[in-house]
């Protein structure tokens, strides 16, 4: 038991080292997010009324787009260097690898977005009460996005022709997330019930994720 926990700790330690050495990738993601906000404001025009109405939906759309940008790297590096096989030989099943990688993707890719949300809200003039609900909804929704990203990127491991397919799959599956999480922010009365619906979606997808990802990883490793 202790050895197992130690293995998990070293997995996260290695992920930490890899992500710190490639920190510019994460910074590039966040820069993309802010530049797209600027471009949106240039194209709409800087009227405060329109921005405060449309701001939340714009923010969510841009967060979705910019967090799907780095999905091709989700399993690709570990797959090419053979780390997936080493992890499997160390006693992790593919399903457990999927859970661990999803959590580390959430920590190292989505949490920087959560940190940068308040700054973006200042830019778009979103009132302070909405920022809290935006943070809660993105904290749940980004975990759903990580699970979907894990499924789609493991599907596309052997896909050498069509690189955009993974992002398209994530975006088509994330439509309910967008509907409910923007609905949370725009209504005051149904807050708790909509949070429950979003949390239910999270639990369903978190339950599906390891099985689908594990099957895809097995197929990819067998046929490589």
């Amino acid at each position: 038991m202790f050895i197992f926990l130690k293995k998990i700790f070293y997995f996260f330690y290695r992920e930490f080292k890899v992500n710190i050495s490639g920190f510019h990738d994460i910074l590039t993601n966040i820069t993309f997010f802010f530049i797209s906000i600027f471009i949106f404001i240039f194209s709409i025009g800087p009227q405060d009324k329109i921005l405060s109405v449309m701001g939340v939906s714009i923010l969510w759309t841009l967060l979705l787009l910019s967090s799907t940008l780095s999905l091709t790297k989700f399993y690709r590096d570990d797959f090419d260097t053979g780390n997936l096989i080493i992890l499997h030989l160390n006693g992790f099943s593919f399903e457990f690898i999927a859970i661990l990688k999803t959590i580390s993707h959430f920590i190292y890719v989505q949490v920087p977005f959560i940190i940068s949300i308040p700054i973006a809200c200042v830019l778009i003039n979103i009132p302070m009460e909405k920022v809290y609900s935006l943070l809660i909804s993105f904290a749940i929704g980004s975990f759903i996005l990580s699970c979907l990203g894990s499924i789609s990127s493991s599907m596309n491991l052997l896909n050498k022709r069509n690189y955009l397919l993974g992002s398209v799959i994530v975006m088509i599956l994330s439509i309910p997330v967008i509907i409910f999480s923007v609905g949370i922010i725009n209504t005051e009365e149904n807050f708790i019930s909509l949070i429950n619906v979003l949390f239910g979606i999270l639990l369903i997808i978190f339950a599906i994720n390891p099985w689908a990802t594990g099957a895809c990883l097995k197929i990819a490793l067998q046929n490589n």
Partner: peptide, 27 residues
């Protein structure tokens, strides 16, 4: 459309057909 794209974008047939089946079940 995505199912058709997946069918056309993998080189290995054994991979492609299983992934299409998994995506159909998710969709």
């Amino acid at each position: 459309l995505i199912i058709i794209f997946i069918n056309n974008s993998f080189e290995n047939r054994a991979v492609r057909e299983k992934i299409v089946a998994i995506f159909i079940l998710i969709g």
